[in-house]
Amino acid sequence: MMRLPWFNYRSPKSVAEAARILAAEGRDAMLIAGGTDLLPNMKRRQQTPATLVSLRQVGGLKDVVNGRGLTLGAGLTLSEVVNTPALKDSCGYRALHQAAAQVASPHLRNMGTLGGNLCLDTRCLYYNQNEDWRRAIDFCMKCNGETCWVATSSKRCMAVSSTDTAPALISLGAKVRLVSAAGDRELELNDLYQNDGTEYLTRQPDEILTAVSLPDLSGWKSTYWKLRRRGSFDFPILGVAAAVRAAPDGTVLDARIVLGAVSSRPLMTEAGGLLLGGKLTDEAIAAAGKKATSAAKPLDNTDLDLYWRKDVVSSFVGYALREIRGDDMSATRLRIMRQL
């Protein structure tokens, strides 16, 4: 049986109390929400916080506010997000619904939270291994070691951002609220991330992500396409989130295409810009696909062949944009993603 290391367990009742504990304990403390990312990492000794600060009893983290736009508490489980009526029925928010519904497995979605998903540790086949496996490669730069085995001359860790909801939420223009003992701030979700496998968040260790807010997206359509080996469990090895606002005649007014799992952060591509002012013709879609492909930099540290993963980016961008255009993609979606 894989077992957790020893830890101190704290169970604050409010965000303020949690923030105080984090401030006092410093980097030795970590937040735990659903635990579906942190606990496996602890069992493998990738992360060994001395203190776990649980968000389970913290009030207010499951609030859903549906007004102009939508605010989702960071403590909502992914299943709760999937079942939020405001998401299910809206074309604008569909990408989030689809992304959340494809995270991990049904059980893990019942446990894992939205906040945890956004703060998910980056992943790498040299890193997500038991301690004694990592000892056999003399560890790596991200944890206890010197070298990055994926790119031995690299100065930084290239572990992969593997969250499904972040690309979707970024395509929707989401903002997140971060609270610490020193105060709180709101920032664009896009700015929460940086392209460094070790320091992948701009969040300070004492900050708590409390809520995600989405703008009013009437007039928008969005979608999320995920590439993974199996219809369950697997992290994305490519995520394509697309959100488009079009005029009644189909002319694209706004478009964002965000890629997941091809870099250490979700990648806002320039492909969206190419679509502006035109219609979602096959040619425009192909051009967007090509543009997005050039941004993707997959490495040999996840499942499947890295060249192939780059090769298929444009197909996946195509599926997404055709779905937004109104093509019936349900058969393809079912075949590729086992998602209805």
Binding site: L125, R229, R230, G231, S232, F233, D234, D303, R338
Partner: peptide, 10 residues
């Protein structure tokens, strides 16, 4: 997780 086997969905 990484030794891939079919799930019921596949």
């Amino acid at each position: 997780l990484e030794y891939k086997t079919l799930t019921s969905a596949d």
